[in-house]
């Protein structure tokens, strides 16, 4: 029994190390400046924040973060607004074609993004949004909207029927029911769904890579992927790691803080045994 427990603890430890090590290594690397970068040591002999300073001075990383924040916030707000209404219709009203609509919504969320790239490119250019945040808000809707609709529909369905009926007897129409009865009850669901959609938008790469051109217009993932140093052959690994740490720490914090909510949001969105 004791041996089994030890073996088990070792397995758990192994998984934890495997999960955490790459990020820990990124932190270590980000603290190495100059030639220290090119020695493999577990902790830099002279830890330095030079890389962190550099990404904000030599690179427009502050601007990139702002871009990401704006694009993700806008698309999440827009998606939640559209999705709450749609989720009420899909989750609580019986009408012909509802099953098909849900299927379409799910289908869209499974779309390969390249499949809409040329059409979206045309649309973005036509709307004059190329190299602007608007192009990202527009294109991100393709995955955040189906996701929020789907998850909120499953949440909406769980709300007690009698509550809605009481509101009807009180004279509330569908819009009042959604906005004044259900919405105040969906705070946790909205937070979880919004957070997941935000993370998805924050992490998006393909659209951001395609619809932005200049360093200033880039989002965080594109900036991190394309970050270049003095020469073309020498990637500024220290800065890349510093940038990675900067954008990941808040995410990890949020995720750990909202662990339970996220797990329930994910499973509501994906699996119904």
């Amino acid at each position: 029994m004791g041996l089994r427990r030890i073996a088990f603890a070792l397995v758990v430890l192994g998984i934890v190390v495997w999960a955490v090590f790459p990020f820990a290594w990124a932190i270590v690397t980000s603290l190495k400046a100059g030639s220290a970068l090119f020695t493999v040591e577990a902790w830099p002999s002279q830890p330095s924040l030079a890389n962190y300073a550099a990404i904000f001075k030599e690179q427009p990383f502050g601007r990139n973060i702002l871009n990401s924040l704006m694009a993700a916030s806008a698309v999440v707000a827009l998606s939640l607004g559209l999705a709450v209404l749609a989720a009420y219709a899909l989750g609580r009203v019986r009408f012909r074609g509802r099953g098909l609509l849900l299927f379409v919504v799910l289908g869209v969320s499974m779309f390969p993004q390249v499949a809409v790239l040329s059409g979206l490119f045309e649309l973005v250019r036509w709307l004059g949004l190329y190299n602007r945040i608007g192009s990202l808000v527009l294109s991100y809707l393709i995955f955040t909207l189906p996701f929020t609709v789907w998850v909120l529909t499953t949440f909406m369905r769980e709300l007690p029927k009698e509550l809605e009926e009481a509101a009807m007897v009180d004279g509330a129409g569908p819009f009042v029911i959604v906005t004044r009865v259900f919405l105040p009850l969906m705070g946790p669901a909205l937070a979880a769904t919004g957070l997941l959609a935000f993370i998805a938008a924050w992490n998006e790469f393909l659209f951001a890579l395609t619809f932005t051109l200049t360093d200033d217009a880039r989002t965080v993932p594109v900036a991190i992927a394309l970050m270049s140093g003095a020469s073309q052959y020498e990637l500024p690994w220290g800065q890349i790691m510093a940038a990675s740490v900067v954008v990941t720490v808040p995410l990890i914090g949020l995720v750990l803080l909202f662990q339970r909510r996220i797990v329930s949001g994910l499973t509501a969105g994906a699996v119904k045994g």
Binding site: P160, E162, L163, E165, A166, A167, V169, V181
Partner: peptide, 10 residues
């Protein structure tokens, strides 16, 4: 006016 079994208070 209706009174529900589960009260159905907001």
């Amino acid at each position: 006016a209706m009174v529900f079994q589960s009260y159905a208070l907001y």
